[in-house]
Design a protein around this nucleic acid. Structure first.
Lengths: 113, 113
DNA sequence: TATTAACTAAACTATATGGTTGAACAAACT
DNA sequence: AGTTTGTTCAACCATATAGTTTAGTTAATA
């Protein structure tokens, strides 16, 4: 699990830019070409393409090449890892929801044994 | 809510460094002096101090000065915001836990009305 | 075959980042 | 008063980042 921390570095870094977060949101609707992802931004195409690359290298986005167009889709596994990391702090903003949630989580771990 | 995105930028950026994440974890146990936070790292004191500052400016850490020593403590509100942002993607890794979780969340919103 | 469209790659610029060192400062200790 | 401790600040360095522009590749279209 040594690489876990390096992965979190790159995932959180990828998320630290509004353009990239916007692209992830755009992908919620399903697969999109890089051109479509780039269009909303006042930025060169090449610039947007570099953002996609950052997302891809962080493992947040998968790329499928078909002909000349590159289709991107969400890959949520790493987002989940980031979320798990944050969850550790739930108890610091904790309300009853999170208490319930933790109970369920423990139960889940028990089932996974 | 325009500054929300800028805040997420700085929060995710603050989280993108292992040293800073480590410091947050150290603060789970409660308030700590900057010297204590710095000690575990093979880094100059001034370097570590700069990391603390990044955490502080991202709103993840509060600072209380008493005499010559600066005590830091977790401030989870921004972590919560980051977590909320990530939660949007729950359905992409969704398992039954998250379904339950969403139900509870909706119930909570109803109660907050 | 020539052109256009969807991309990447490379080279470059400006700025941010993570780190260092050395100096400064206020507070506690002798 | 002098020293040590906990900390910041400023200057500096190397590297990374976000952006640009221009050139190149591959695929669809006329």
């Amino acid at each position: 699990m040594v690489e876990q921390t390096a992965r979190l570095d790159t995932v959180f870094h990828a998320l630290s830019d509004g353009t990239r977060r916007g692209m992830l949101q755009a992908l919620e609707g399903g697969e999109k070409a890089i051109g479509d992802l780039a269009r909303p931004y006042a930025m060169s195409f090449a610039g947007a393409s570099k953002h996609v690359r950052v997302l891809e290298q962080a493992g947040l986005v998968r790329r499928r090449i078909s002909g000349r167009t590159h289709y991107c889709s969400l890959d949520a596994a790493r987002l989940r890892e980031a979320n798990e990391w944050l969850r550790r702090y739930e108890r610091f903003w904790g309300d009853r929801l999170d208490i319930l949630d933790n109970l369920l989580r423990q139960e889940d771990e028990a089932n996974n044994t």
